[in-house]
Simulated scan of single mutants.
Amino acid sequence: MALIHPSAIVDPKAQLDSTVEIGAYSIVGADVKIGARTVIGPHVVIEGHTTIGEDNKFFQFSSIGAAPQDKKWAGEPTRLEVGDRNTVREFCTFNLGTAQDAGVTHLGNDNWISAYVHLAHDCQVGSNTIFSNNAQLAGHVIVGDWAILSGYAGVHQFCKIGAHAFIGMYTSLTQDVPPFVLVSGNPAGARGVNIEGIKRRGFTRAQIDAIRAAYKLVYRSGLTLEEAKTALAEAEAAGGEESAPQLRVFREFLGTASRGIVR
């Protein structure tokens, strides 16, 4: 049997692995599924159609799977999905998706989510990300793998943040951020490549040089965005095995940037 504190309230219909731990005064709703070895601290509320994977740790006072903060939501059975090995610190709020989008809010694996972080309805967050205290995502935001959001960073709805991007403290983000790019400020501005981040993740010199070249084409060459896309495609075609994939990632992101990019 799951280790459930006597003061916790767990709906009999909830599906809990036998190794799950539920802390004092926590509440778990009927449509919740929680995987092996996940620990739910005290005073946590988990509700809605919420699925949580294995080896997660939820600290006290979080609200997980509550109704989306969207006036259009009419009680549809939308979902929240949380992967494996995530750490979720105090006072976080993760909302369900809405029928106007994919119907699901998703958090991947191995993420570090600090205190007071908000993941709004329909956000899609990858794996290995870091959210510092009070980072806030509005609805429909997409965050790529390995991205880092510093404290008090705020992201406008429908924005996209590419893999390995870095968002500085107190940044107000209203446009998309390409992969590998470091942005900060209010309004946000591009400040260079997230060199320290990609070095720590084992990128080779050739890969880093390719990323720097892509950044220069987009941000330092004086080209329009469309001209930069063409230049990236040409550089990709002429690139080697290590450089071409990095150029392609950059180029493909630009092709999907719906709100324009931070420049």
Rank of each mutant, 00 (worst) to 15 (best):
F253I: 08
I148L: 11
Y116L: 15
A214C: 06
G202R: 07
Q136M: 15
Q246T: 07
R89F: 07
R201E: 12
G126I: 12
L182K: 11
A30H: 14
I211E: 05
L232M: 06
A238D: 10
G151H: 03
H140G: 07
V82W: 00
V183L: 00
I195S: 11
F250W: 05
A165T: 01
N133T: 06
T171W: 06
N109G: 10
I22M: 03
A67C: 05
T51A: 11
A115E: 13
Q207I: 02
F61K: 02
A24S: 14
I64N: 05
Q175Y: 11
I27D: 00
I148N: 13
S62N: 02
A257Y: 06
E54V: 12
N95F: 04
G65V: 00
A67Y: 10
V82M: 13
L247W: 12
Y215H: 08
I208R: 13
K71N: 12
T129M: 13
K199P: 09
A24H: 12
E227S: 09
L149G: 01
Y215K: 01
D122R: 04
P42R: 05
Q207M: 09
A235Q: 14
T87Y: 09
T174I: 14
T87A: 08
M169I: 14
P12F: 02
D209I: 08
S114D: 12
I167M: 02
L3P: 00
N128D: 15
A206I: 06
H121F: 02
A66K: 15
T174K: 14
I4L: 08
G83V: 06
D55W: 03
F203A: 00
Y170V: 11
V181W: 02
G185Y: 01
G83R: 05
S26V: 10
I34N: 12
T230Q: 15
G260I: 08
K229A: 02
S150F: 09
G29E: 03
F61G: 02
K71S: 14
L16Y: 03
T174H: 14
Q157W: 10
E241H: 12
T19V: 04
V28L: 11
W73S: 01
P179F: 00
D11Q: 05
Y152M: 15
V20W: 05
V193N: 09
T87I: 14
G222E: 01
Q246P: 03
K160A: 14
L247M: 12
V45E: 10
L254Y: 00
L225R: 13
I27V: 15
M1T: 13
I211H: 06
T38S: 13
L137N: 03
F250Y: 12
A190Q: 02
P42Q: 05
E241F: 06
K216Y: 07
G202T: 06
S7A: 12
A36E: 15
F250R: 12
N133C: 01
S26E: 11
R259H: 14
S221P: 01
T78P: 01
